[in-house]
């Protein structure tokens, strides 16, 4: 199990786990599920589509190549469909596991800036702890804005 230091941690009633568009990691999901289960807390699963990968591919393909508008749009559609399914699939696995463990959960899917959305959701749901992956600077930026512990799961 991924042990998270419990110092300076008050009672945990709500856990927020946040995933970005390109990373819904198993390890982060497991850490959040474990914490929610141990503390009998509610789990907020936040998926932030912070990068428009489809648009990036369309731009590179359009700028560099001979493929016309219709082909690029069809490709973008294929990619969007695939990525939508991918994100749904990954979130569904976490939800299934939460259900199996009897954890109360709520899933939120939003678009926009990763940190900004975490801060907004953390305040709105009065969460007690936030779990994210990525860099230490990302964690520090979030921690400065909200008064609850933020854990980085690598």
């Amino acid at each position: 199990m991924n042990k998270i230091p419990m110092r300076n941690m008050k009672d945990i009633n709500t856990v927020l786990v946040a995933f970005s568009a390109t990373s819904i990691h198993k390890k982060l999901a497991k850490a959040a599920l474990d914490m929610a289960e141990e503390n009998n807390a509610k789990l907020i699963i936040l998926s932030v589509r912070d990068k428009n990968v489809t648009q990036m591919v369309a731009k590179v393909t359009k700028d560099h190549g001979f493929l016309g508008r219709d082909v690029v749009e069809k490709l973008a559609e294929d990619i969007k469909k695939d990525r939508d399914e991918l994100i749904e699939h990954r979130l569904a696995r976490i939800e299934e596991e939460a259900e199996r463990r009897g954890i109360e959960f709520e899933t939120l899917q939003v678009k926009g800036n990763f940190n900004k959305n975490i801060i907004e959701v953390a305040e709105k749901y009065a969460v007690d702890v936030v779990l994210v992956d990525g860099t230490g600077s990302k964690m520090e930026q979030i921690e400065r804005k909200i008064k609850v512990p933020v854990h980085l799961i690598k």
């Binding site: 560099h64 490709l75 695939d82 991918l86």
Partner: peptide
């Protein structure tokens, strides 16, 4: 790099790797 050429960008968009 995905921005180097469309095949790399298309493969990256699959979401299987970073």
């Amino acid at each position: 790099l995905p921005m180097g050429t469309p095949p790399n960008a298309i493969a990256y968009s699959s979401g299987y790797y970073e």
